[in-house]
Design a binder for these strands. Structure first.
Length: 307
DNA sequence: GAGGCCCTCCGTCAGTTGTC
DNA sequence: GACAACTGACGGAGGGCCTC
């Protein structure tokens, strides 16, 4: 490693002169970081710092003693007096996102670790995919229904629309998961935007879905339209209506969240990979330094003997 | 082949954090 | 404060491996 590490665990109290509390129940590491050849690494002792990263701590090219302790989850947290209790609490409670962490790592790290790009390109890609499948809709029960309207790409939420849907699959469509013979239909318009339709489903034995009128109530989010056969009068219908609305909201969130979860997992994987790479590099550096130290020791001993 | 176990991936929900 | 984005946790699906 490019810095001398004075790592003192619980059985070896610190002798570096810093005022460290002795009553810490967790393992206390005292790190003395010296100027190194490694590109500037800020003193950032936060939850993502791994034990193997202790040695890269450096501050303004000066020798500095930093005290850290494990936070109980294997994370190292700086506990010396430079960081107040409030600050420390903040560090512990606020865990940055994988995107942020990785970008920070990437900017501080040598080139080669790719930054996580903004989502613009991906969004464009997703849109292009969506626009290629405008003829199919998915119900809340996960079924795919083909819209057989003459020009479904021109469906609008203005005024009344009538569409006819036919079952695109081999088996019969069974509407479920919605109150009293209703289902939610999600479809993608020609411009790639998502549409959600609550439809009272009545399916013929042949698997054909009847025609429905679609309108766009102002209470629903943009891109969401409702299909209602009649007006709502009874409390039961109101309850059903609110249930429908709740399901609509969840439905819209589900679609977004599915994508978000995918992204999150991708970032997490990338982040773990990044850390693994970093560990490998640091292990290699460590090995090299140990070898160097060995050879220098031998050289020194040999010199002393000859003198 | 059947069944059990383990692992990975995915979708979903709920809670938290960030942004405007 | 509202809304969007993010992420941990949970459970289900599917595949690989092993044992019987």
């Amino acid at each position: 490693m490019d810095g001398s590490i004075d790592d003192k665990s619980e059985d070896s109290p610190s002798s570096s002169g810093s005022s460290q509390p002795q009553n810490l129940s967790t393992v206390v590491h005292t790190i003395t970081a010296v100027p190194t050849a490694i590109p500037n690494q800020p003193v950032q002792v936060q939850s993502v710092i791994q034990p193997t990263q202790q040695s890269v701590i450096q501050a303004a090219g000066q020798i500095q003693t930093v005290q850290v302790e494990e936070d109980g989850e294997g994370h190292l947290v700086r506990t010396d007096t430079d960081i107040g209790i409030e600050k420390r609490r903040e560090i512990l409670s606020r865990r940055p996102s994988y995107r942020k962490i990785l970008n920070e790592l990437s900017s501080a790290e040598a080139p080669g670790i790719a930054k996580i790009e903004e989502d613009k390109e991906e969004e464009a890609a997703i849109t292009s995919i969506q626009t290629t499948i405008p003829s199919y809709v998915q119900t809340s029960a996960g079924q795919t229904i083909q819209i057989a309207a003459a020009n479904q790409n021109e469906l609008t939420t203005q005024g009344l629309q009538t569409i006819t849907m036919t079952n695109a699959g081999q088996g019969a469509v069974t509407a479920a998961a919605m109150p009293a013979g209703t289902t939610i239909v999600q479809y993608t318009q020609g411009d790639g935007s998502q549409q959600f339709v609550t439809v009272p489903v009545s399916i013929s034995p042949a698997g054909e879905v009847q025609a429905y009128q679609i309108r766009a109530p102002s209470s629903l989010p943009a891109g969401v339209v409702m299909a209602t056969p009649t007006g709502i009068t009874s409390p039961q219908q109101l309850a059903e209506e609110s249930a429908r609305k709740r399901e609509l909201r969840l439905m819209k969130n589900r679609y977004k969240n599915r994508e978000a979860a995918r992204e999150c997992r991708r970032r997490k994987k990338e982040y773990v990979k990044c850390l693994e790479t970093r560990v490998a590099v640091l292990e290699q550096q460590n090995k090299t330094l140990i070898e160097e130290l060995k050879s220098l020791k031998e050289l020194y001993c040999h010199k002393a003997e000859t003198e």
